[in-house]
Design a protein around this nucleic acid. Structure first.
Lengths: 359, 359
DNA sequence: GTGAAAGCGCTAACAA
DNA sequence: TTGTTAGCGCTTTCAC
């Protein structure tokens, strides 16, 4: 009772919404579906003549076997986990990806990576895509949005799909791996204060980043615990990328003429951008301005002035996230949620110095 | 004729190889599979009591609906393409990914990224994984290996899965997007020669990279066309990363005491590594040594000495690859293979200078 | 409200 | 060598 051809093909362009199925091919080739299947799977039981007819039909119809359907019977189904990060062009995430990949591989899983590029809708869409692709679990680095609809994340629970968060989300109970950003940021600033700095600016990250909010909070706490006054103007919106730091620093040091003795940055990329702006303004690091980064990405130690920064164990974060996830997958995750906080470390290089006494 | 429970569950740990199916849940809850399906899909036709029983069984059995099976009927199947790159922690690839992602998105497709991290086996495995995940097409940045078994790539043809290559592979006919590396590398060296340099070294990329081989070839041609002698010792094996450049340069300039007036590098990362080694050896860029990179990644212009480099249109490459692929998907790809070569440009910044006449 | 049954695209026996 | 058929795990009518 099947129509002759489900698709309406016009020349080489297939007009149909539906793709050709094995039935269509069988029909066009005038053979049974079993035979088509045999050809597709390179069984040696098919005659040259029949094979040729089938291949012709396959090609005419642009037939593609549905991977979903064929996989079912092969219990060899590869294990995989999905990873959703915010930015792909950031060495910080590259390391997280590598850490996750290695740990997953170790356990026999492969990693599928997607990036949301700051779009909240995309985050939702990609999570759904990964679920549709039947990954065994998900690691998500969520966008921060106070009005956010978290339903795509809650949906995972309903489907019993294990989830590990990198960076926390308000209002969602889940496994998580992160560092204590407030504490790390606070101690970086305290280090500067101990070295005589009293006027310190902080270049913040993107609005959508929980980490950025936490790091700002750390700066605030460092000041208040040292009883120093703190000017809101010295919280400077920058972003996550090199040129964000560059632009923000030019504006801050140039147009607004501010002259703190030290600057802490959302991340190392921003710090590198700040470097260039300072160089262009004739200010030297660290003699005129001390600069502190965050993350300790590879290039931090390769900068003209090796960068003092907060080292985040990026690979370990990715690795732990993958392990947590896979444990959760394999134990069918009825345990409590785990929240893992990894250690950071202030790596002092040459971009910071004790403040000159002349003040 | 089904056994009572396909799985043997012990406490909370599921010992079975097979996962629970909708049948298992139905059985445990004492209802039909239709009812279970209704609960999973939040139909409002189920009584509180039944729903509760089902949910309990779902939870007991750690049941997860198979996405593959459920997707079949929903023709809303999201469109997606897979991307396989060699290294994820390289800004070059980050830009390619972003370009591909944007172009794909534009056409209604999402991108699934994987990285092979220099492993040939992994490349094969990931291609197979992506096919199993039913992506509509694949963009692959292949590892170079002369003994390589390309069957995983040929397999794609048999399954009518469109493929676009970034970087060519010997012996494989397929769509491709690339730049002319030989020409670009040649003209970079020629630029140096025009500026009086006669002793030039080249720091090569990884062995698995076709691009690296092509760039070396470009250097050779520049020399021979200028009738300059060329010492094989000045082809220095480095790699693709910052520390590869650093290590190689230390070895070359330090231990072996070579002193060319200019260096061209496989990529910008290597160049940045070379910068640091030169700095540590007390050599200045460009006064003692001119340095040329390749790719023009973001940090190139942010380096202490802004880097002269060959600009590769990375985003455009990713974008064109995605477009080619999607055209091929939607036209069911019976056209000829397309090979697209994009333009490069030598961007002269401050890391190169005319050679001092003192020689 | 719930169950039975058909069908999705495919593979793997097993007949013919 | 080829065709037929019984599933795979799920959703969706359509009776009961």
């Amino acid at each position: 009772m099947r129509p002759l051809c489900q698709n309406q093909c016009l020349g080489s362009i297939c007009m149909a919404g539906k793709n050709a199925t094995i039935h269509d091919v069988a029909e066009r080739a005038g053979v049974s579906i079993g035979t088509v299947s045999a050809v597709i799977n390179r069984k040696s039981t098919v005659s040259q003549h029949t094979r040729r007819k089938v291949l012709q039909a396959v090609s005419d119809l642009h037939y593609r076997p549905s991977a979903a359907a064929r996989r079912r019977l092969q219990p060899t189904a590869e294990k995989s986990v999905g990873l959703v990060v915010k930015e792909i062009n950031n060495p910080y995430f590259a390391d997280i990806i590598i850490g996750a990949q290695m740990a997953a591989k170790e356990r026999g899983y492969n990693l599928l990576v997607t990036h949301t590029e700051r779009s909240y809708d995309l985050e939702r869409e990609l999570v759904e895509l990964l679920v549709a692709k039947d990954v065994d679990g998900l690691i998500v680095n969520p966008l921060l949005d106070d009005n956010a609809d978290l339903s795509h994340l809650f949906e995972l629970k309903r489907h019993n799909i294990p989830l590990v968060l990198i960076e926390s989300v308000r209002g969602l109970q889940a496994n998580m791996v992160d560092v204590d950003n407030v504490a790390a940021s606070k101690s970086a600033v305290e280090y500067l204060i101990e070295n005589g700095h009293t006027h310190i600016a902080h270049f913040t990250g993107p609005k959508y980043s929980m980490h950025s909010a936490e790091r700002v909070e750390g700066v605030r706490r460092a000041f208040s615990s040292q009883r120093l006054i703190f000017d809101e103007d010295d919280i400077v919106p920058a972003g996550a990328r090199i040129d964000d730091g560059y632009t923000a620093a030019h504006h801050y040091f140039g147009e607004r003429g501010k002259r703190p003795t030290a600057v802490t940055c959302y991340n190392d990329l921003v710090a590198i951008g700040v470097y260039r702006a300072l160089r262009e303004l004739g200010l030297s690091v660290p003699d005129d301005v001390s600069v502190v980064g965050y993350d300790d990405i590879d290039i931090a130690q390769y900068a003209s002035v090796p960068l003092t920064t907060v080292r985040v164990p990026k690979r370990e974060m990715g690795g732990r996230a993958a392990e947590l996830l896979i444990n959760s997958i394999e134990s069918a995750g009825d345990g409590e949620y785990e929240r893992v906080f990894l250690e950071t470390e202030l790596v002092v290089r040459e971009s910071t110095t004790r403040v000159h006494q002349e003040a």
